[in-house]
């Protein structure tokens, strides 16, 4: 493991424009992949990537939030902020995976679901809620990996899974530290302080029972060695996917339910 960085230092890495995105990882982890489009209801959201491909020869369904690598790409994918149709596309492909007994691999990398008029009109709340509920009982293994930013309900909509892995410098949070500071202290400039207090690092996720595995990044961050980080992600998937596929699906679903059911701190 490389040197321990603070939450704030890691946040800078996550926001680094050269941090690898799903499009960088795809050819280094999967083969024979075909991208799939549209939710069959309204449109095709470019902030959500969907594909069928192979992992070590095994057919899998890949669902991912798409960050751009420059301004044009980012405009096209709306800075990885999905609309409801993106989540509905994800659910359609998850259902298809269930039908054809393919495991689902979700890559989370979003600042959050998009906040806009059209998103509200088309039921952002309903779209996220539906995904969460349906993924909970999806009768095929689901593995999610947080690549960079895991922001809010927009991340959780791809995060109901049998096991969650998180890249060493990635973050997962109820809200961006900036938004958090702005709500609680009415001062968005206290972003750094918020990032340190919110418990958003990979280690925090494991301790709080949200993630099971941390995927190690190359020294200085994922962008320093794309081959190495891709290899680490692939190594993890190659180990976990067969393990989950072997399990009786009813046992798996019970464990998935329990994984989320037990998170919380209360006194009786």
């Amino acid at each position: 493991m490389s040197e321990k960085k603070s939450a704030w230092e890691r946040l800078q890495l996550v926001h680094n424009v050269s941090r690898p995105t799903i499009r960088d990882y795809l050819p280094l982890i999967f083969t024979d992949y075909y991208e799939m489009h549209g939710d069959r209801l309204c449109g095709d959201d470019k902030a959500i990537f969907g594909a069928i491909g192979r992992l070590d020869g095994r057919p899998v369904t890949i669902i991912a939030q798409v960050k751009g690598r420059d301004i044009n790409e980012n405009k096209a994918c709306n800075f990885a902020m999905p609309h409801p149709e993106g989540y509905r596309k994800a659910l359609r492909l998850a259902r298809q995976a269930e039908k054809f007994h393919r495991p689902v691999i979700c890559f989370i990398d979003t600042p959050g679901a998009f906040c806009g008029v059209a998103a509200e009109e088309r039921g952002m709340g309903e779209a996220i809620a539906r995904n969460i509920a349906e993924f909970m009982t999806l009768r095929t293994p689901v593995i999610s990996i947080v690549l960079g930013e895991g922001g809010s309900g927009g991340a959780l909509a791809l995060g109901v899974c049998d096991e969650l892995a998180i890249l060493e410098n990635a973050q997962y949070s109820v809200l961006s530290p900036r938004g958090f500071a702005s709500i609680l202290w009415k001062d968005a400039s206290r972003e750094q302080e918020a990032s340190e207090i919110m418990q958003i690092t990979a280690e925090d996720m494991v301790r709080l029972g949200v993630a099971e595995t941390i995927i190690e990044e190359p020294l200085g961050g994922a962008h320093n060695d794309l081959d190495k980080i891709s290899e680490n992600i692939k190594e993890y998937l190659s180990k976990i996917i067969p393990k989950k596929c072997e399990k009786d699906i009813d046992v798996l679903l019970k464990e998935r339910y329990t994984k989320f059911r037990k998170i919380g701190a209360f006194i009786e």
Binding site: L156, Y172, S173, V174, L208, F260, R261, I263
Partner: peptide, 26 residues
Amino acid sequence: GARMQEGIVSLMQMAKTSGAVKLHSD
């Protein structure tokens, strides 16, 4: 919305409650 003071734990309550709704619905 989510209770900010509980950080990621509050986000996970969305999954927990939705899972229970699904169980009841099924």
